[in-house]
């Protein structure tokens, strides 16, 4: 479902060119539950930005659900983000002046869905993450774990192909982190693809596939190893 071939990306810092992704090859299938780990500076955030169509890449090939993601207009990019990807951020990124339900309904607003249907759908997803009773609360009135649940409900609301979560437990205590991971697991059990970027081992190990990044390259990927093993045999 996600197909990356020799993805390269560099940033220009003054006169120097800093190569952040040095040729990433990656295949993620439908319904997978993947963790990407790496030190800071390993390129994992850049990789996530490329995957999330938040940033462009210099060369290589990126296909998302069979659609080539290359040289998109800003408008197309926005449409693909809305249709394909559900984002979950470390700091939740909920709009502080909108209540839980309105936050969840926001991606649907950009799909042009009417208010009534939008709010109904938003309530369904809030219920799914166990926050139906909190729908009228502002983010400031909710705990960190609750905010992250609202953010996950928002990511789900547009029925994306994949959930991209950037350090989703980074701002949470360990108990809450476990709950959130539990939520991701149950979503994955329903067949939703989940990709989590993290630097915490215990979070990464709860995922079904762990990809390690180092210096802009994939250092370890069990899928590759199996393939390589097959090849050797």
């Amino acid at each position: 479902m996600i197909e990356l071939r020799d993805i390269r990306k560099s940033y220009r810092i003054g006169p120097r060119k800093l190569e952040v992704l040095k040729g990433i090859d990656l295949h993620i299938g439908k319904g997978e539950f993947v963790a990407i780990m790496g030190q800071s500076g390993s390129g994992k955030s850049t990789l996530l930005n490329v995957l999330g169509i938040l940033d462009e890449y210099d060369s290589g090939l990126y296909e998302l659900d069979g659609v080539p993601i290359r040289k998109l207009s800003a408008k197309q990019a926005a449409r693909y983000r809305n249709a394909f990807i559900g984002f979950v951020f470390q700091s939740f990124n909920l709009l502080p002046f909108k209540n839980a339900m309105e936050n969840v309904a926001l991606p649907l607003y950009y799909q042009g869905i009417g208010r009534k249907e939008r709010n109904q759908t938003a309530m369904q997803y809030l219920d799914k993450v166990g926050l139906a009773d909190w729908s009228t609360h502002l983010p400031s009135e909710l705990s960190g774990g609750q905010n992250q649940r609202v953010a996950i409900a928002r990511a789900l609301a547009s029925k994306p192909k994949v959930i991209l979560a950037d350090e989703p437990t980074g701002a949470l205590d360990s108990t809450t982190s476990k709950e959130i991971m539990g939520l991701f697991e149950s979503l994955n059990d329903e067949g939703i693809s989940v990709l989590i970027v993290t630097h915490e081992d215990d979070i990464a190990h709860r995922c079904k596939r762990l990809i390690r990044l180092k210096d802009g390259l994939i250092e370890a990927d069990p899928a590759l190893e199996t393939q390589a093993g097959k090849h050797l045999r």
Partner: peptide
């Protein structure tokens, strides 16, 4: 900026 970023990530076009 962050609000705008979030809106864009959720599918808001530049035009919108």
């Amino acid at each position: 900026y962050r609000e705008i970023g979030v809106r864009k990530a959720l599918g808001a076009t530049n035009g919108s």
